[in-house]
Amino acid sequence: MKKILLVILVVAVALLGACSSNIAQSKSVSEKAVKKIIVGTGTQFPNICFIDEDGKLTGYDVELVRAIDEKLEEYEFEFKTMDFTNLLLSLETNKIDLVAHQMEVNEERQEKFLFNKVPYNVFPLQIVVNENNNDIKSLDDLAGKKIVTTATSNAAIFIEKYNKEHNLGAEIVYSTTDINNQLRTGRVDATISTPFAADFNNKYADAQQKVVGESLLNSNVFFLLQKDSTTLSDRIDEALIELKEEGVVSALSEEWLGADYSVEF
Rank of each mutant, 00 (worst) to 15 (best):
N167Q: 06
T58R: 02
D61S: 13
H166L: 05
E53R: 08
I241F: 08
L72Q: 10
T185L: 14
Y60M: 11
V249W: 08
K35P: 07
S153C: 06
D234Q: 15
W256P: 09
I8F: 02
K137A: 01
Y204R: 04
Q25D: 13
Y162T: 13
A33S: 15
G144V: 05
Q226T: 07
D199Y: 05
I38D: 05
T177I: 01
T194H: 11
Q209I: 00
D260E: 13
K2G: 09
A156P: 11
D52S: 03
N106S: 14
V129N: 03
S219T: 14
V212F: 03
L6M: 11
T152H: 10
Q209W: 00
N201V: 00
A156C: 13
T43N: 06
L243D: 01
L216D: 12
E92P: 00
K95R: 12
D206P: 08
E160T: 15
R187N: 13
T185E: 11
K146R: 12
F45Y: 10
E245C: 05
A259M: 12
A251D: 14
L5A: 08
L5H: 09
F200H: 10
E53F: 05
L91K: 00
S28Q: 14
N163R: 06
S262D: 07
L89C: 00
N130C: 12
F45V: 06
K2P: 02
N220F: 02
F77R: 08
Q44E: 04
I51L: 12
S253N: 15
L114G: 10
F196N: 08
F115M: 08
Q182N: 04
S253R: 14
G42I: 10
G17I: 06
Q182P: 00
N47C: 12
L72F: 10
A197V: 08
Y162C: 09
Y162N: 11
N180R: 01
V62M: 13
N94D: 11
E264F: 02
K27Q: 15
E104W: 00
S90D: 03
S262Q: 07
K27G: 11
L98F: 10
R66L: 12
P195T: 09
K161Y: 06
A205M: 05
E131Q: 14
D234C: 09
S233R: 06
V39Q: 07
C19Q: 11
T93W: 01
S250H: 14
K3D: 04
S30E: 12
V221I: 15
E255P: 01
E238S: 15
Q44R: 09
K146M: 04
E246K: 15
G258V: 09
N133Y: 02
L9I: 09
L232Y: 07
N116G: 09
D141V: 03
D206F: 13
S20G: 07
E31S: 07
Y60C: 06
G258C: 09
S175A: 11
F79I: 05
